[in-house]
Nucleic acid binder design. Sequence first.
DNA 1: GCGACAG
DNA 2: ATCTTGTCGC
Length: 223
Amino acid sequence: MRVRALHDWPRSPAEAEAIQDRLRAAVRVTGELSGVRAVAGLDVAYANDGSDDLVAAVVVLDADTLEMVDSAVVAGTSTFPYVPGLFAFRELPALVDALERLTTTPDLLVVDGQGVAHPRRFGLASHLGVLTEVPSIGVAKTPLGRYEPPGPRRGDWTPLLDGAEVVGRALRTQDGVRPVFVSVGHLVDLDTATDQVLRLAPRYRLPETTRQADHLGRAALVR
DNA sequence: GCGACAG
DNA sequence: ATCTTGTCGC
């Protein structure tokens, strides 16, 4: 698929924040999604040897069968330090490379990380949504904001808050498991994002998109 | 000012 | 993210 090129790459955290503040204006947190046939899952695996080597993996699943119909794996190196809030700049280049190697264009991106549930409302999922102009949602394993525990059953959720503002949801995807943290990336609304995550997680805590991308990525790590 | 802080 | 043993459960 085609992805808008990464322009003016930041050389410092301050520059990275400025880029987020500039691009966030493009984010649309509405949209109902019709005819989703192919859903992409994106994940990055890191080398276990202390280096900055990494592998970005993208899978595309059939929305109904959840079977893989396309995939891409690329090796890369993170050139930006890990700073919460600027996490996207570690994984963006490799993930964009991987997306460009897909032979298909997915209808939805499911990203391992936050969307607008972010201090500047522009997490990795939003960033990728804006660069691709494809609807995107963030599914994180831990939150940046605060929340009250949702009910114990699959489908139960509570708002994820940044101060008084609702930025996403703590969503229980299976009975009795820890919730995942869903937020809008771009071009979808929060109800739709929640529905999609539940549909993509029929059996495990994490959506199949994330799981399959994770498996592919770590299998590609050399050791 | 201090602590917390996606992967 | 990644380093790790055993353990509980289907």
